[in-house]
Deep mutational scan, measured.
Amino acid sequence: RKEMTAACTPRRRIINLTSVLSLQEEINEQGHEVLREMLHNHSFVGCVNPQWALAQHQTKLYLLNTTKLSEELFYQILIYDFANFGVLRLSEPAPLFDLAMLALDSPESGWTEEDGPKEGLAEYIVEFLKKKAEMLADYFSLEIDEEGNLIGLPLLIDNYVPPLEGLPIFILRLATEVNWDEEKECFESLSKECAMFYSIRKQYISEESTLSGQQSEVPGSIPNSWKWTVEHIVYKALRSHILPPKHFTEDGNILQLANLPDLYKVFERC
């Protein structure tokens, strides 16, 4: 597991931080080997919608929660590849102030007048994250320049770009939802926020969305749709870069829909 690298990086740093090793061990302890084997050997059937997909393993048909699986995938990559990410360069710098204002204007932020003026909160978020810029760049390849612009994001899987519609809320939550006081809790909560931002979430995906850094293989055609990215990038990574937690067998994120021999018997009677 320590050699797990989802995106190509030129050289690998050895990380011996106790906090990170502890988080890696927790993933191992909570892992479910049968689910790992199923995901490793599954045959992708198709997307139901951005949140759900169908896959077959041996004779069984499964309904998989793409949102939760991708979130767990990105969390584990962030923990196992800690401080070893490439950088996704933004085509132009994104001012943190503008991103924070967009987030505060969104109902998702939960902002009320009692929280104070949005401009003041946005300025605080910019200054707060600028103070964390060195650590964010060093460990997470999340790059913020001296003017308070976001200029780079971590490359977690080759050819995958997170849904940038979720970027404003991500920046807001970096400042408000991460435990910045304790090292282990900081790395864990920061990785979880980043994983949620990178995950496939239906509120940020339309039929026209593209999450891939590449064009489709047909010359002159439109960019790959999110469905292509889910199948050929995300579920491909799920084959080798995730140890599913045991609770996925109990919380409805992986559901067995049918045993195909039983279905064949039904059709034979028709």
Rank of each mutant, 00 (worst) to 15 (best):
Glu3Ser: 10
Glu3Arg: 09
Thr5Ala: 08
Cys8Phe: 06
Cys8Pro: 11
Thr9Lys: 06
Pro10Met: 12
Arg12His: 12
Ile14Val: 05
Leu17Lys: 03
Ser19Cys: 05
Leu21Arg: 02
Leu21Tyr: 14
Leu23Ala: 13
Glu25Arg: 11
Gly31Tyr: 13
Glu33Pro: 14
Val34Ala: 07
Leu35Ile: 09
Leu35Gln: 10
Arg36Cys: 14
Glu37Leu: 13
Met38Thr: 08
Leu39Arg: 11
Leu39Lys: 05
Asn41Lys: 06
Asn41Ile: 14
His42Pro: 06
Ser43Lys: 06
Val45Lys: 02
Cys47Ala: 06
Val48Cys: 08
Asn49Asp: 08
Pro50Gly: 11
Trp52Asp: 04
Trp52Gln: 09
Trp52Lys: 03
Ala53Thr: 10
Ala53Ser: 07
Ala53His: 02
Leu54His: 03
His57Cys: 09
Thr59Asn: 10
Leu61Phe: 02
Leu63Arg: 06
Thr66Pro: 00
Leu69Phe: 13
Tyr75Trp: 12
Gln76Cys: 07
Ile79Ala: 08
Tyr80Ile: 02
Phe82Trp: 02
Phe82Thr: 02
Phe82Asp: 05
Ala83Lys: 02
Asn84Lys: 06
Asn84His: 12
Val87Asn: 06
Arg89Lys: 04
Ser91Pro: 02
Pro93Gln: 06
Leu96Tyr: 00
Phe97Thr: 02
Phe97Pro: 01
Asp98Gly: 03
Ala103Glu: 00
Ser106Tyr: 04
Pro107Leu: 13
Glu108Ala: 05
Glu108Met: 04
Ser109Asp: 13
Gly110Asp: 01
Trp111Phe: 10
Asp115Cys: 15
Lys118Tyr: 15
Gly120Ser: 04
Ala122Lys: 01
Val126Pro: 01
Val126Tyr: 13
Phe128Ser: 02
Lys131Ser: 13
Met135Arg: 03
Met135Trp: 05
Leu136Arg: 01
Leu136Gln: 00
Leu142Ala: 01
Glu143Arg: 05
Glu143Asn: 07
Asp145Gln: 01
Glu146Ala: 04
Gly148Tyr: 08
Gly148Trp: 04
Asn149Asp: 13
Leu153Asp: 00
Asp158Lys: 08
Tyr160Trp: 07
Tyr160Lys: 00
Pro162Asp: 00
Pro162Trp: 00
Pro163Thr: 06
Glu165Phe: 04
Leu167Lys: 00
Phe170Cys: 00
Ile171Glu: 00
Arg173Met: 03
Arg173Trp: 00
Leu174Asn: 00
Val178His: 01
Asn179Gly: 03
Asp181Ser: 03
Asp181Glu: 06
Asp181Arg: 03
Glu182Val: 12
Glu182Trp: 15
Glu183Gly: 05
Leu190His: 00
Ser191Asp: 01
Cys194Ile: 13
Tyr198Met: 08
Tyr198Trp: 11
Ile200Tyr: 09
Arg201Met: 11
Gln203Val: 07
Ile205Gly: 06
Thr210Ala: 09
Ser212Gln: 10
Gln214Glu: 09
Gln214Asn: 07
Val218Trp: 12
Val218Ser: 08
Ser221Gln: 05
Ile222Thr: 03
Pro223Asp: 10
Pro223Glu: 11
Asn224Lys: 09
Trp226Met: 03
Trp226Gly: 04
Trp228Ile: 10
Glu231His: 13
His232Leu: 14
Val234Cys: 14
Tyr235Pro: 00
Ala237Trp: 13
Leu238Cys: 05
Arg239Leu: 08
Ile242Leu: 07
Pro245Lys: 10
His247Ser: 05
Thr249Phe: 09
Ile254Tyr: 09
Asn259Lys: 01
Asn259Met: 05
Leu260Met: 13
Val266Cys: 13
Glu268Pro: 12
